[in-house]
Design a protein around this nucleic acid. Structure first.
Length: 423
RNA sequence: GGAGAGAUGCCUGAGUGGCCGAAAGGAACAGUUUGCUAAACUGUCGUACUGGCAACGGUACCGAGGGUUCGAAUCCCUCUCUCUCCGCCA
């Protein structure tokens, strides 16, 4: 959520930046400013009435204490009109504030000045490409066929016990998953991220805190009986740890990471592009989350991007980095890099990580602030990134590393898997 | 699931209708003293909105939301959460 004060003071710039994100309702900006004017006007009326009423109540209290009951009685009569006025004004202020909030949540985050204008994924910039795409023989198999061939992932069994999008990993498939999780967590640890194990269900307040609610309600699994949501990413519980928190400036940056399963209903997805591991309802992911000082957030974004890339290099996967254009960026992000790995048999790029700087967009809603040395509070900046999401890494490993002798495990993973080949 | 108790500031904790935005202690921060550390002493020490160049004001907040009252941390109602005991279970 953007800050109203920022919108007021930087109207032109806000409009210009929203255009980069291809935002269709620029009139909302002026509506917000008008509503805020109205809010101030009504609130100040309400407050001056309250001030008068408080003053009278104080006088009455003083008289009562002195035992002058008779003198207090006429004062009471004066307050009836205050009560009525303040009641209607309170209702009006509440209505204005509700409308202001409704308008405010329509506005996406403002893209950073380095973000290019654009409408769709076609307009994203390829900022970096690394590695050599393997030359596979004609008979190369897509990962879902390899999974069956080596009996390491069973999609049918998953269908039976849960449904499509809930695969069962078996034997070396399961061990490879566990190896990847441990590898990612160990690497994050080396980078100074504190490992956390959060709940994988969250309450409504947390869903609102990171912006999944109310917008993406339909994308989360909801446990109705207890009104809890299965997390779509560890970003939700980890970032919400800092909801309504004021940290000391010297505690920044705060670096946390977490492995969790992630649950996404993916309502509306279908077809060949969701085959196999490409898109699942449940998947594993290691997430890195930082809370930083505003001055450093863009440097941190670059650091996080390099870190994610270092993981892909270690796994010897060809990848590319996309700088997302305004139109393809998430609603809450100011700048996002997507990392995509090459899946050789499918001959397509698959997104395995998304690293974003949210600036104050999340922290404003979360009320996540830091207290500066001068004693004032300021909103902190938040960032997060996948490091990494497992299924597509697995897909890419299986497809790219397939040989006549089986699937070769990257050497960095062998200490974790304790085997070199899936055959 | 049943019964009971509770929710106050960074923490502990007092406060049962006006003098309470809130005692006291601790923590933290700044200063004085000190050869250093410690101790002692002094001071500062919630958040948000809002008026003002500022000095300094106003309003709201004692788990959340309603209500009673001239006036609510305090009384009433609803909800949420926490703790204790019992039951069940890992």
């Amino acid at each position: 959520m953007l800050q109203v004060s920022y919108i007021r003071e930087n109207r032109e710039q806000v409009l210009e930046r929203l255009a980069v994100k291809n935002f269709k309702q620029p009139e909302v900006v002026d509506q917000i400013i008008a509503l805020d004017d109205k809010r101030r006007e009504f609130q100040s009326k309400l407050e001056s009435i309250a001030a008068e009423a408080n003053a009278i109540a104080k006088q009455i209290g003083e008289l009562m204490r002195q035992g002058k009951k008779e003198e207090a009685e006429p004062l009471k009569a004066n307050t009836t009109s205050f009560k009525e006025q303040s009641k209607t004004l309170t209702e009006e202020v509440a209505a204005i504030e509700a409308e202001l909030y409704n308008q405010l949540v329509i506005l996406p985050n403002l893209p950073h000045s380095s973000v290019v204008k654009g409408i769709s994924a076609d307009d994203n910039e390829i900022v970096y490409e690394y590695g050599v795409k393997p030359n596979l023989p004609e008979i190369a198999l897509p990962h879902w066929e390899l999974a069956t061939k080596y009996d390491i992932i069973d999609f049918e069994l998953g269908n039976k016990i849960a449904g499509a999008g809930f695969p069962v990993y078996k034997g070396k498939g399961a061990k490879l998953q566990r190896a990847l999780i441990n590898f990612f967590l160990d690497q994050a640890d080396l980078q100074g991220y504190r490992e956390m194990q959060p709940p994988i269900v969250v309450n409504e307040a947390s869903g609102f805190g990171t912006g999944q609610l109310p917008d993406k309600e339909g994308q989360m699994y909801h446990v109705g009986i207890d009104n809890l949501y299965l997390i779509p990413t560890a970003e939700v519980p980890i970032t919400n740890l800092y909801r309504d928190v004021i940290v000391k400036e010297e505690e920044l940056p705060i670096k946390n990471c977490a492995y969790t399963p992630c649950f996404r209903r993916e309502a509306g997805s279908y077809g060949a592009h969701v085959r196999g591991l490409n898109r699942l309802h449940q998947f594993d992911k290691v997430e890195i989350v930082q809370v930083v000082h505003p001055d450093t957030s863009y440097q941190v974004l670059e650091d996080m991007s390099s870190y994610v890339q270092s993981l892909l290099k270690a796994l010897e996967l060809p990848y590319r980095v996309l700088g997302l254009c305004g139109g393809d960026m998430g609603f809450t992000s100011a700048k996002t890099y997507d990392m995509e790995v090459w899946c050789a048999a499918q001959a397509r790029w698959l997104e395995v990580s998304s690293v974003s700087n949210f600036e104050t967009y999340q922290s404003n809603r979360l009320k996540l602030r830091y207290k500066g040395k001068e004693g004032k509070t300021h909103l902190a900046h938040t960032l997060n990134g996948s490091a990494l999401a497992l299924p597509r890494i697995l897909a890419s490993l299986l497809e790219n590393n397939q040989t006549e002798n089986g699937i070769k495990i990257p050497s960095v993973l062998v200490p974790y898997t304790k085997f070199e080949w899936i055959s």
